[in-house]
Structures are given as C-alpha cells and as structure tokens.
Design a protein around this nucleic acid. Structure first.
Length: 272
DNA sequence: ACATTGACCTGGGAGC
DNA sequence: TGCTCCCAGGTCAATG
C-alpha cells in the first residue's frame, strides 16, 4: 500500500501528537510481522521519550532516548492516533500509549510490515544502509543515476522500484513517473538517453511532491492518521486505468505484467 | 555483480 | 450463498 507519499503523510499526521511525549505503556498483540517484534520491546520502550519522528525511504524512524524505533507499513499497514475508547481492530498488532493518553496504534492485516528496534545509527542499520538517496534531496540527480544505469539490462521500471538505487517509488508512482517522462516502462535501463534521465529525475520529484501535498493515494485501505483518505488517486494518469483514454493523446491505456506487478502505459506517448 | 523468482500474509472481488 | 481463483500500494532471500 504505502509508498513514500503515504509514509510521509503518516509521519506528518502523527508527529504533532507524539513528539516530545513520554511512553507510558506498550502493547504487542501479535509479534509475527515481516520480522518478529522484539519480545523485550515493551520493556525497552517504557518510560522513554519519543524525541522526534523522521522518515528514510518508506521507513518511519522514531528517535527515542536510548535508540531508534523503526516501523515499516508493508503493503497494508497503517498508523493512527487513537484514544482508549476507540475499538481495537482485528489486525491491530502493536500500540504505544503515551503520557498524554493518546495511543499510536499499528494495524496491518497482511503483516508485511515491521516494528523493530536498534541502537545503531540509522545509516548503519542493516535494513537502511544499502538504500539509495532520498528522492526529494539534491543527492538524487541525473548525475547520480546515469553511472548506475549504464549497461543495465533490467527494465527502467524495475530499476526505479529497486531501493538500492531509488527509494520511495513503488508500483503506483513508478507507472506515473514513467508516463510523465514519456518513457516506456519496458525500456532497458541502460538504454534510457540522458535527456530522458533528466526528465525522469524531475518527474519523480514532482509526482512524489504532489502526492504528498494531496495526502497520498487511497486506492482502498490507505488512511491518513486521522482516518481520512488521501486524494492523489484523482490525479493518477495511468495507474489502474487500463482501457481508459490517455489524458495526453486519448489513446487507450494498456496494461501488462512485469515480475508479478501490473504496469500501465500509453502506447502512443510511451514508445520503445 | 546482476537478473529473476519465490516467499511472507489477509481480504476483497470476479466468476461460476 | 458459497466456493475457487486472482489480485493488491513491499522487499528480502535464494537461486542461476
């Protein structure tokens, strides 16, 4: 479910309620996520203050007094600020009760998400140390990408969804960015010409920025931390629109499968 | 080093 | 209604 804009939307929604708050109590209802929630996490977190919450790629990082709480939303996870009277959903696996009586509750039906703890520096942590630069930073540029692309035979779509090189871009925004840059998703990564790499960098930043401004994309179950949907779905050009008219040229949007993920493109605007 | 595939899970919708 | 099959926003690990 959540790509960078949805994770960032979540971060912005919960930060004002939790930053600077002391943790009263932690409840783990189900340890079995992508990786097990550390069994001593409740003891570790109790009494600590959440100093700040930041984001790296699609990971949320909660800086606590003695280490870092790391949450990944997986495909179906969401974090919401709730109160004691809010009912506990079937798949609410983890929650933090704060001194201000608010509850940060993690719900994830498919359990592809993760709740982890480390005392390492975030850049050294094994799930974060291999990640590409933040796409909205100046480090993410065509100068950075061009050397990585040369000679590569995977498709450009597969490439931009690979967190080793580009982070935050999942299936929705990969399709949208390639449409905006007028690049066919099957184009071998090493054959994307420099001018198109420039465009691609520009549109990735643009589409992520606009999606954050809209509060993310709600297809079915993504909800902002206040329970409301994000509105970027209305601005999608190709994702989920097979058979509809391309907004640029009115050709019919096509779909195909690539490594078990649906790819959408306009056969007129995005040629091989 | 790189490319491809399977694995982890549940729920919703389509089709019969 | 109910069954089966397919699909879904992620990404690591294992395999050539």
């Amino acid at each position: 479910m959540p790509e960078l804009p949805e994770v960032e939307t979540t971060r912005r929604g919960i930060a004002p309620h939790i930053e600077g708050q002391k943790i009263d109590q932690v409840t783990i209802r189900n340890h079995k996520l992508r990786w097990p929630i550390p069994s001593d996490l409740a003891d570790i977190l109790g009494g600590q203050t959440i100093q700040s919450i930041s984001r790296r790629a699609k990971y949320l990082l909660f800086q606590c007094d003695s280490g870092l709480l790391i949450i990944h939303l997986g495909m179906s996870g969401h974090l919401q600020i709730m109160t004691e009277s809010d009912p506990i959903a079937k798949h609410s696996h983890f929650e933090i009760q704060l001194e201000n009586k608010l509850i940060l509750r993690f719900t994830d039906p498919r359990r592809f998400g993760a709740v982890l703890w480390t005392q390492e520096k975030s850049d050294d942590y094994h799930l974060l140390n291999h990640l590409g630069p933040e796409p909205l930073s100046d480090d993410f540029s065509s100068e950075y990408l061009i050397p990585l692309l040369t000679g590569r035979r995977c498709s450009i779509k597969t490439f931009i969804m690979n967190g080793h090189y580009v982070v935050g871009v999942g299936n929705i925004y990969a399709n949208e960015a390639l449409f905006l840059a007028r690049i066919h998703p099957k184009t071998p990564a090493g054959e994307v010409v420099e001018a198109d790499v420039d465009s691609l960098v520009r549109v990735i930043k643009e589409v992520l920025t606009k999606a954050i401004a809209a509060g993310g994309t709600t297809l079915k179950d993504f909800r902002k931390s206040d329970g409301k949907p994000g509105y970027f779905a209305q601005q999608l050009n190709v994702y989920g629109r097979e058979g509809e008219a391309c907004p640029q040229c009115a050709s019919l949007i096509k779909q195909y499968k690539e490594s078990q993920r649906a790819s959408f493109y306009c056969p007129q605007c995005q040629t091989l």
